[in-house]
Design a binder for these strands. Structure first.
Lengths: 188, 188
DNA sequence: GACAAAATGTACAGATCGGTTCATTTAATG
DNA sequence: CATTAAATGAACCGATCTGTACATTTTGTC
């Protein structure tokens, strides 16, 4: 019943491989080998490798925002509490084995032209996340909810790349400490 | 008098191209074409492409830290002022045409294994930057200078990737606003 | 101008790249 | 069981990848 279609299976598996190894570093032959799906099928569902990458990023966007909102709702019930819970969720994710930096930051690193569709989908994801946090900030009665949301997003992005490059030890707790200060400073 | 050697010329030119186009996306043939230096010479100075990349990153580390410290010294003369000046310098850099994200973040994005020499040199650069900021924080008499330095570094990294992905409009000013709050909160 | 060092252009190797072709096999449906 | 659709394997295309080989030309020095 509603077993994932071959196409969905391909996108899910390709997502993991692109996330683990990168985009340029992952050839179509490696995808065939690791997914067990034939190249013929891949090119039946997606006209180009780029189209497949875009599909994996769309799925990632959905998966990641689901994970964030679900955990935040579970961890807190006040608006201000949810803003802090963003950073508890961030910490959980970074601490997990699944963490391997942010797929959209890495995508934008490999496809730097802002008008490139892959770069554009990364921007869209970040904009969506910022808007979500601005909503939480507005619910909390913050004077400049967009401003606070952008500040908190800076901490989130910083923690992700720092954990990826320098290690997981400090990044997430530091981000949460700093976030609390900024939230308190912005709160009425 | 001390005209750059062919090897130095190669590293400088390769740095610009890798920074602009990425590492996997830049082939040796493109380097030959754009630098005007023959492939034979390149492989005389560097055994592999990876060795050349490492040389460009070493140069970038030196250039970037020179730029930061020079501007910070020019902009402020008190320790606390220098901490804020970090973010003025960041803003200048991001606003400039030379800005194209952080080369080390992009390097770590393409070479994700922490034990890979390219990833390791990125970590070294970030550690050096953090230590530098901790020194400024200590001079300012902050109680936990390393902690403040790590928080400010999160803002810096966040501003860099945000400016790269979502655009330059808000990233640096937001980072400076947040930094000032954190610095005031940490100062005696 | 003679000599040595440095740099060059070109061709090439072997592997891999994204993508196509096509005949065959598997799976679902009547 | 027969028919159709879905998926496969394998070979192949031209381009590009990193790296090498070698003969030639340029450059600097006495």
């Amino acid at each position: 019943m509603a077993r994932p279609s071959k196409q969905e299976e391909l996108v899910e598996k390709a997502l993991k491989i692109f996330y683990r190894d990168g985009f340029h570093a992952t050839g179509m032959d490696k995808l065939v080998e690791e997914t067990g799906i034939s190249k013929t099928s891949m090119y039946k569902y997606f006209r180009t490798k780029e189209d497949l990458i875009l599909a994996t990023l769309e799925l990632r966007d959905q998966q990641f925002r689901d994970m964030m909102t679900t955990r935040i709702e579970a961890l807190a019930d006040t608006p201000k509490g949810k803003l802090v819970a963003c950073f508890d969720t961030l910490q959980e994710w970074i601490a997990s084995d699944a963490f391997n930096c942010c797929m959209f930051i890495k995508a934008a690193s490999e496809y730097q032209n802002p008008s490139h569709p892959i770069h554009a989908i990364a921007a869209k994801h970040k904009n969506t996340m910022t808007t979500y946090m601005a909503g939480l900030a507005r619910d909390a009665g913050v004077g400049d909810p967009e401003g606070l949301a952008r500040q908190l997003m800076l901490l989130k992005e910083g923690a992700i790349v720092t954990a990826h490059i320098q290690g997981k030890a400090y990044a997430a707790p530091d981000a949460k400490d700093a976030a609390r200060i900024l939230i308190e400073h912005a709160c009425p």
